[in-house]
Design a protein around this nucleic acid. Structure first.
Lengths: 251, 251
DNA sequence: GACAAACAATGATGTGCGTCAATAAAGCGG
DNA sequence: CCGCTTTATTGACGCACATCATTGTTTGTC
């Protein structure tokens, strides 16, 4: 959002956004890496033309050769079930990496698609691997990022396995709120780039349930929505709902 | 199972099981690593005394300093929800690594507990990190293992989000079958070390549902069970159930 | 600016699975 | 070997959420 679209086309100097200048670099791979080493990381990264909404970053089945860092915009990644329907496995905001699950198989197992106009950094994996074996702090950060991904997925498994519909939506909204805050945006008021359908799919719920929950949350004074724009009125109550809620009536 | 309990206590030579001799080494970290480098990996690994059923490998909240490879037996890992109940995030068989989700936070976020008598290799993480920065193939394998973990978690998310109860159980049994086969055991007949309760917890189902499904699977001629012993009679049909099942009546 | 397609909201109805309850069977310590 | 606890099975019942159906709203296209 911050460093999108240069004023003039073909102005390469303006397009050139070094990791060192990127205001996401403390959310992304460069975190904790020396300026000198950041430049070397910088050299292997390709900044691609922005993707339009709906465009694929990569598709399942395609050979794996790079991971991607979101620079601006947002992306959903999803796998296809055997019977053809999709299951969304994550929404990705600026500074986050996409494609880490392909490393083990040399093939993309999920597809990634832009939810809005999105620009990304392409990081060729073989070069990243090579570089990280010479830059311990990069190796360290890469392993940390992957570990964090595992942690998040485990959290998601708990959400899908144990939580009721309202808790799932609350948790998802809290996660968004938190991540927007990390990126310098308001934690109480933001724009959801994904459709209700996508939210439902991600949370293992029917679209109708998501819709009904949004209206119920509004009736309860938790938040206000105007289409995809969300304003959270009671962050505390929402976070409680996202966490412990399943209380027996008598305790 | 293979290399457990030495005949005599204090017989250090018998206890000493090098990675190179371990019949799991092509399922574990040593995969694809030169014999020379395996010895170096070997040097940093501690083989601990076997854990009894119910013993903790580590507990959530404990400082992270090592990951663990299962040598024999099996382990469940689980997180506690805010309201105190546990959510099992995985069952681990010999050759598999446990604790990868702790790398990012320096603290164990989940606990791991032996489901039966279990022996493990403790791999101090700082030394592993150090060694892998000098042994590219080790670094490579480590990243692959973590990526595979992410992939599995995504698969699990799909299971919990989109699949019906019978499909979940079928998928879990197929996963076990596959993993036993990889380890040289029969894919059709094996012993489940976890309780029905654990299975239900893992799959996001009530114990009663798991029980009912086992009896229904038996009625349908899919398998036979004798307590925790399972014999799969129709592997094909079970795998179909585990995959595509949700078919509208008319297609 | 008009039309189509995608998206969202809301009500009516059905059902898969959770919850509660009771019994049986198995493991376990003394 | 015997009580005690844990685990497993089975049935009855209810509810949370899916499914189906309808209408309104927004977005994109020519």
């Amino acid at each position: 959002m911050a460093n999108a679209q240069p004023g003039k086309p073909l102005d390469l100097a303006a397009i050139k956004v070094a990791c060192a200048n990127c205001n996401l670099h403390n959310l992304c791979l460069p975190l904790g890496i020396d300026t000198g080493d950041i430049d070397r990381l910088d050299d292997i990264i390709n900044r691609k033309r922005p993707l339009a909404r709906g465009e694929f970053l990569f598709q399942a089945g395609a050979p794996f050769h790079a991971i991607y860092a979101i620079r601006s915009g947002s992306v959903k990644s999803f796998t296809a079930t055997e019977d053809g329907q999709e299951q969304i496995t994550g929404f990705h905001l600026p500074g986050e990496l996409v494609g880490l699950d392909a490393i083990s198989s040399d093939t993309h197992n999920c597809s990634a698609r832009a939810l809005e106009t999105t620009s990304v950094c392409e990081i060729p994996y073989s070069q990243l691997e090579e570089l990280s074996s010479h830059v311990p702090s990069l190796q360290r950060q890469l392993l940390r990022v992957m570990s964090r991904e595992i942690l998040q997925d485990e959290h998601m498994m708990m959400l899908l396995g144990r939580k009721a519909a309202d808790e799932r939506l609350a948790a998802m909204l809290m996660s968004m709120s938190h991540r927007f805050k990390q990126r310098g945006f308001s934690p109480r008021e933001f724009h959801l780039s994904m459709s209700r359908n996508d939210i439902g799919n991600y949370l293992g719920l029917a679209v109708e349930t998501v819709s009904r929950l949004f209206t119920r949350f509004q009736e309860d004074g938790l938040l206000e929505t105007e289409r995809k724009h969300v304003r959270i009125l009671d962050l505390t109550r929402l976070s409680v709902l996202a966490g412990a809620n399943r209380i027996s009536p008598d305790e």
